[in-house]
Write a protein that binds this DNA or RNA. Structure first.
Ligand SMILES: [Mn+2]
Ligand SMILES: [Mn+2]
Ligand SMILES: [Zn+2]
Ligand SMILES: [Zn+2]
Lengths: 134, 134
DNA sequence: TTTACTATTGATAATGATTCTCAACAAGAG
DNA sequence: CTCTTGTTGAGAATCATTATCAATAGTAAA
């Protein structure tokens, strides 16, 4: 009689697949607009709104990380290996820092302040090689 | 004959003074809108645009720090003693961490990656006491 | 297959924080 | 006072992101 809603897991659509695949190809931490341009090269019919929705979806599925960085546009990263980000305050470029040992942030000490840090989302502001004289 | 522009340093206007004074009173890292509401209690005639402009000005003068934090609105801090910020990913609250020794980020090691970090602008994402079960 | 239902999409409008425009005003130099 | 430039309030514009909505596509029951 009443229609029982199914478990609904057919969620890997062609659009979402393209977004994830294109994001995996690059290491530039592109903005949504930049992802859209990459996706367009694969399929002209995918809309910008769908790119935004796909990115949201992939972030929720924890297949993609969303970076706030500097600037107005968010940036995205499909590399899930633990690393943090070095964000240039001048040009906005985002580079990776995989050697997390270089960041000896003492989680336990911060924990005593009543705060559970997520260090894999850490964005360290500064100046990149090109923008920094030193 | 030609008018030589003066050194022009009469820049501490009443509006800017109120903005800075109100910001110094609080430790909540308010948004521009929240600063506007504080300023309104002192002087109803100050506009939101002026609050934005004053905050920009104070940031440029390095009297105020601008935080990107999570969320859409920027936050501001008039406390210039060296400290970093703990940003709750859930509720958005920003708290201070003055004991920078707790953050033993190795600037030299990061420097080897060709990046000059500004650790006094560091925002550490995580979960605050209220939002974290642990 | 046919039907019923729901998720997803493209196109487009709306939102909202921030920035810009501009005429009026304020203040310093002469 | 006069000239010039900085600052303001009011409101418009910008632009990244989100919401709306009708159309479509996928799924499962019958
Ligand atoms: Mn990365
Ligand atoms: Mn602070
Ligand atoms: Zn740079
Ligand atoms: Zn919280």
């Amino acid at each position: 009689m009443s229609y029982i809603p199914k478990s609904t897991c057919y969620r890997v659509t062609p659009q979402r697949r393209i977004v994830l695949e294109e994001l995996k190809k690059v290491c530039t931490h592109p903005t949504a607009q930049e992802v859209y341009e990459l996706v367009q090269k694969q399929d002209k019919s995918v809309s910008l709104a769908t790119v935004y929705r796909s990115l949201d979806f992939l972030v929720e599925q924890e297949l993609v990380i969303k970076l706030k960085a500097r600037g107005k546009q968010a940036r995205y990263d499909a590399d899930l290996t633990q690393h943090c980000h070095l964000v240039c305050k001048k040009c906005g470029r985002v580079s990776d820092c995989f050697d997390v040992e270089k960041l000896k942030i003492d989680s336990k000490e911060i924990g005593k302040l009543g705060f559970c840090p997520c260090l894999d989302y850490l964005e360290i502001p500064g100046l990149c090689r090109e923008c920094c004289g030193c």
